[in-house]
């Protein structure tokens, strides 16, 4: 069951990507694509990229080298789109808060630059897990992308929590899905790129990665399809008092 190219393997490779493309189309049909164009592009293009990779994996006429070339292309496309999605979520988060908008953008840019340097440094320390640079480079690049991606996501969550910024439901769902995926993928790619695990362990990691991505796509479906609960905030249960006290408080404040 837990073997490469088993039914479960093929299902976990194909299903989340088909679901991802379907979700992208659903968002377009609902007219939400104007709100989250980068995420829609990510769902559709990254999904198609992974499906093309699956095709390259099972097609007998695709050589091993060409498979890795397709894998590189899909990875580069996915990485670029993911950073656009993070930028889009950042914009939507900061849009209603003009007082911290500039600070947020500057801090994200700064932390992004630091994360790129850090990820480069980590990649520099790695010894490579494969004699073929095309393959070991792919693993290291995966690790690098996830270090930067996860760092930016953690920063966004912390920034929003520190300033008590309220998330737009869709943006929150997008980032939650991306973060779960990034945590799992960073851990597995770090082991693959640095610890030279056995073939069986790699296969198990493959299952884990695909299952996690499946979960993330389902999370995104949930946030797109299930409407937000309307929370009715009651008016402040104010203590009994009168306007005279109000005025006294106001005067006291003005005299400070």
């Amino acid at each position: 069951m837990l073997q490469a190219h088993s039914f479960l393997w093929n299902y976990l490779w194909v299903a989340p990507n088909l679901l991802s493309v379907s979700l992208g189309c659903l968002i377009v049909r609902r007219g939400l694509n104007r709100q989250i164009p980068a995420f829609v592009a990510f769902l559709i293009l990254a999904g198609l990229g992974d499906l093309a990779l699956f095709g390259a994996d099972i097609a007998p006429f695709v050589s091993a080298r060409n498979y890795w070339v397709v894998a590189w292309a899909a990875l580069l496309l996915e990485a670029v789109l993911k950073f656009f999605v993070i930028g889009e979520v950042l914009s939507k988060l900061l849009m209603p808060y003009s007082s911290v908008s500039r600070l947020g953008r500057n801090l994200v840019s700064g932390s992004g630059a630091i994360l790129v340097l850090l990820a480069g440094l980590i990649a520099g320390f790695a010894h490579g897990d494969n004699p073929f640079r095309l393959i070991s480079g792919f693993h290291l690049f995966e690790q690098t992308v996830f270090v930067v991606e996860l760092g930016l996501i953690v920063f966004l969550f912390l920034f929003a929590a520190y300033f008590q910024l309220s998330w737009d439901r869709l943006s929150f769902g997008i980032l939650l899905g991306l973060s779960i995926s990034a945590c799992e993928h960073l851990a597995t790619w770090a082991v693959i790129a640095n610890a030279s695990p056995s073939e069986h362990t790699r296969t198990l990691f493959g299952f884990m990665g695909m299952a996690t991505y499946h979960l993330c796509v389902l999370i995104w479906f949930y946030y797109v399809l299930v409407p937000q609960k309307v929370v009715t905030m009651s008016v402040l249960p104010l203590p009994e008092n009168n306007l005279a006290v109000w005025n006294r408080e106001l005067e006291r404040l003005l005299q400070q």
Partner: peptide, 16 residues
């Protein structure tokens, strides 16, 4: 290095 990154990823997940 792998161990450090795995721990970092786990901590990030808990934090998030």
């Amino acid at each position: 290095l792998a161990l450090v990154l795995v721990i970092a990823a786990a901590l990030a997940l808990v934090l998030i």
